[in-house]
Amino acid sequence: MKIFYFLNSFPGQYLVQSLVHSLIAVIIVDFALIIWRIEKPSLRQRLRFIVVAFPVVSFPLYQVVNPERGNTYFRLNEALFDTTRLLTIEIWGKVPVSIILFIIILLTVVVFLIQEFVPVVKQFMESGNEELEQSDDPHYKERVMRALAALPERDVNVSVIEDEDHLIFSTTGRNSVVYITTGLIDDLDDEQLKAALAHEVAHIIRNRRPLLIVVFFLRVIMFYNPVTLVEFRRIVEEEEKICDDIAISWTQRPDVLVETLNKFYIQEESLKDNRRKGFESIEEYSHNMLIKGRIDRLVMGEGKSVRWFWIKFLAVFSSIVIINYYIV
């Protein structure tokens, strides 16, 4: 009976409906991408934004438009799907179906905490204490400057870190910095270094319009939502591909970017050694899958251009809004 009360309360309805609304949204978006063969990452990303953003506001928005939406009459006569009807079914007359939903939510929260929240907090706590050892070797600086000189955006801070590992990443904010390790510079030729830096500079330019940060905050609000968890990762993957495209538009050398990406591919032998690492091993596999996806896309070449994208976007968005209105 307590579950029934909760499911009929405002927080309960928000929780369940935001989850179901994002599920419907992801189904429609995924099929739309297949039907219209939308391959351009920037367009794919725009459609995926709907899945993360819309469920955050859908329930309160619908209630403002029609306060009677959740009432009994609506549930019985107008709704396409009444979630309470399904969630209060009792399996063998004892266990409500809603328990399954709560287990899924609990697992999602655990994944969110372990994989995203705790590492971010840890990084924030350690950011003041941990000093990266910067390289003073002029050879590295000279190579970096030479690579940057060929890019349209040269006014970028690059910090060379003394480390054997292959690492390159950039920070966001006003004073963005590209961090690159000496180990990676040693392993790349000049063209490959230019491609790697171009990709990071593309990230910095795109982060000046902090859309991805807004999406991240929406994702944090939906910390319990497994669909948002997956979809946010897909958006980040699309972001990588967008930056690949920008880098290629500057360097005109997709083949070089492919070679550069191959340097980040963790070899099978190394993965086998790491089998016992648990979470780390999963991370490495997903890292490899992302790199492989990016390489495959570049090797296949540019997909067909998409005509009437905004009409398609509107069709997807309006069908998500209308269908979800009738899910209570």
Partner: peptide
């Protein structure tokens, strides 16, 4: 959705 509603 309608079918699922009916079944539940």
């Amino acid at each position: 959705l309608k079918l699922m509603n009916l079944i539940s």
